[in-house]
Design a binder for these strands. Structure first.
Lengths: 268, 268
DNA sequence: CACCAGGTGATCGATTATGATCGAATCGCA
DNA sequence: TGCGATTCGATCATAATCGATCACCTGGTG
């Protein structure tokens, strides 16, 4: 040694490591060690210290700049988490669908779950503006899927806009299954998005009966635009955590309420 | 020179896999492995982990972007067929799309690849009857996706039927990009399915210009129903394995022929 | 001069990532 | 429907790295 003109103090060496990693991206511990003329053990100690300060990301075999791995949760994962209630509701709602029926399925993870429950049905015609629903049913042998046209909305994979409403204009089906964002006794079903609301109304308009799928988190919530007034709701399918008072009031207004019971009920 | 100073940490490798799959669409496990210089076993583990996070869709033989709209059965077949050619064709065809354009994209894996190439465009309006294409473009920020209505055809995830044609009736766009099953000098573009043919004609009818995407395996093949007569084909994009005689004949008939050249023929 | 303190390097189990292999399951094709 | 081929999952083997402990070196201090 002593070849080094610089007495490599610890702090100085760490600065150098930081610079190296910042400019080179991920680096192997070995390479860092050779660059700063220190043993791997020492560099490992340094990197560990830098990691504690949040200045670096440590990983097996080396180090990398921090913050690179921002894994965002995907839509698919979100739907998986609230699954049990939605599944129960979907199973209950499936009882309202008969063979040889023609129905409308709106967008939403609950209706998507309902679609999955319908897979084995025979001679069913399903009209939907949800690409998710369409995809679920595309391989079901006994089911005809009709997709409405429209502008594709990225967040929900639903079709909306005037083209959607036009496509729905000529269609008449038995029941429409919808799942909005909020449901109250006063204002019925509501959604925060005006264009979605408009389409929801069109979906309802082409069915003889309207079925709302709403888990308890949605009941009592009101959002911006009303889509279905309470007196137009023929059926409501919800879970057993919903407020019984609300349900009774709705029944008084003529809605048939179906309560899906969760089997393994985690207490609260 | 991009030497292998890259340490290839697990986290970086997974990021790379994500990017690969996101930009290339469905990929075979083997190809991913060779791209990231890791064994298939390792890639399988990575893909499994990514799937658990909901960031990727795993399927037999490979991985695909999440979002559920998949080519389940046709996946293996399609990815193996002529992936590099299709990619090259798609890249070439992308040159025919300008910003602020309005175009029609038909169904098919080649048009789907084209859709992927268009991801970065601004102010683009894309009309399609393919749910696959719609799915690809749904997350592109600068692109409006209009989906035609219609009956969902399971094998290709395309919308067909009179509803589709009706939805297209009121639409006028600059160019239509189609990819049929066969293309000959005598009969132009053809497809084995009558209903698909009818929709293809409607797609062409609402565009000022028609662009056909066809790799060499399709050229010279004739199938049941003619969809686009040769004199209506304004542009043909194909690869450099196509029969030059056919191309010249088409050019004599007024078609502008674009030949995509394969750059890297790796690992096949 | 002896001793201590901080930093550094070396060594040794323990842990981890990776790759190979084999039975099982699945797919494609006839 | 059955068969060959492919792919998957699981287990094991290997190699690399990690964490911890110890030894050493250097400089300061009583």
């Amino acid at each position: 040694m002593t070849e080094e003109g610089k007495p490599t103090f610890a702090a100085e060496r760490r600065e150098r490591i930081l610079e190296l990693v910042r400019s080179n991206g991920a680096m192997a511990l070995r390479d860092i060690a050779s660059q700063v003329r220190a043993s791997e053990v020492t560099v490992r100690r340094d990197v560990r210290a830098l990691e504690a300060e949040g200045l670096i990301d440590r990983r097996r075999g080396g180090a990398a700049p921090p913050g690179r791995l921002g894994h965002e949760q995907s839509y698919a994962q979100k739907t998986r988490q609230a699954a049990p209630e939605k599944l129960a509701i979907a199973k209950a709602a499936a009882a309202l669908v008969e063979d040889d029926d023609a129905i409308v399925l709106g967008p939403g993870s609950t209706t998507e779950a309902l679609a999955r429950e319908l897979m084995g049905r025979h001679n069913l015609t399903v009209v939907t503006n949800s690409l998710l629903v369409a995809q679920v049913l595309v391989n079901a042998p006994g089911i005809d899927v009709m997709v409405t046209g429209g502008s594709l909305r990225g967040t929900t994979l639903a079709l909306i806009g005037s083209a959607t409403e036009q496509a729905l204009a000529g269609i008449r089906v038995h029941r429409a299954f919808l799942s909005g964002n909020g449901l109250t006794v006063d204002r019925g079903l509501s959604t925060p998005h005006p264009a979605v609301a408009s389409v929801d109304q069109a979906l309802v308009a082409c069915a003889q009966e309207t079925v709302i799928l709403a888990d308890h988190t949605k009941i009592g919530t009101d959002t911006m635009v009303q889509t279905v007034p309470p007196e137009h709701i023929n059926h409501l399918v919800t879970d057993n955590h919903a407020d019984p008072e609300v349900l009774m009031t709705l029944e008084d207004m003529g809605t048939t309420v179906h309560v899906a019971v969760l089997e393994n009920d985690q207490g609260e």
